[in-house]
């Protein structure tokens, strides 16, 4: 996960990248909602913060698209939580989005270097 190419406020994300980040953190295994947000925060050294108001609708959208599956389970603190895992369609989507993102990133980088 490289650094985002431009500075941004702590709670803001480039539109569309949230899906990519969620797909990516779920690649290593199922997580529940809070854990996804936490993971993204930790991995970005707290630069990227995912607000619950956008996280859960995004998860819903990915459920609708069939990229994720959700199962209810019990957390370490004995609370009922829902954990999300990637479906095969989700894995494929991750590859596509990653490739797309890298393409765009490379293009922007080369413009920035030459300009």
């Amino acid at each position: 996960m490289g650094r985002l190419p431009f500075p941004m406020a702590k709670t803001e994300l480039v539109p569309g990248t949230l899906t990519l980040l969620i797909l990516r953190v779920l690649q290593t295994g199922p997580l529940h909602g809070y854990a996804i947000a936490l993971r993204i925060g930790q991995l970005s050294s707290d630069v990227l913060q995912v607000e619950e108001g956008s996280l859960y609708p995004a998860l819903q959208k990915m459920l609708m698209k069939g990229w994720l599956k959700a199962d209810w389970g019990v957390s370490d603190t004995n609370r009922r939580v829902r954990s999300y895992r990637l479906t095969p369609a989700g894995k494929k989507q991750l590859e596509t989005e990653l490739a797309d993102y890298r393409n765009v990133n490379r293009a922007i980088e080369s413009v920035l270097k030459l300009a």
């Binding site: 529940h32 909602g33 913060q49 607000e51 619950e52 956008s54 609708p57 959208k61 609708m64 939580v81």
Partner: peptide, 29 residues
């Protein structure tokens, strides 16, 4: 889920409302 999420994060970061998220979700579907 969101209520649980809120309990876990620091007080000052608790932004937004459930209703807004739920409405966005309806649009999503």
């Amino acid at each position: 889920e969101m209520a649980y999420h809120r309990e876990l994060i620091p007080e000052q970061n608790r932004l937004g409302s459930d209703w807004r998220a739920i409405e966005t979700t309806r649009e999503v579907w």
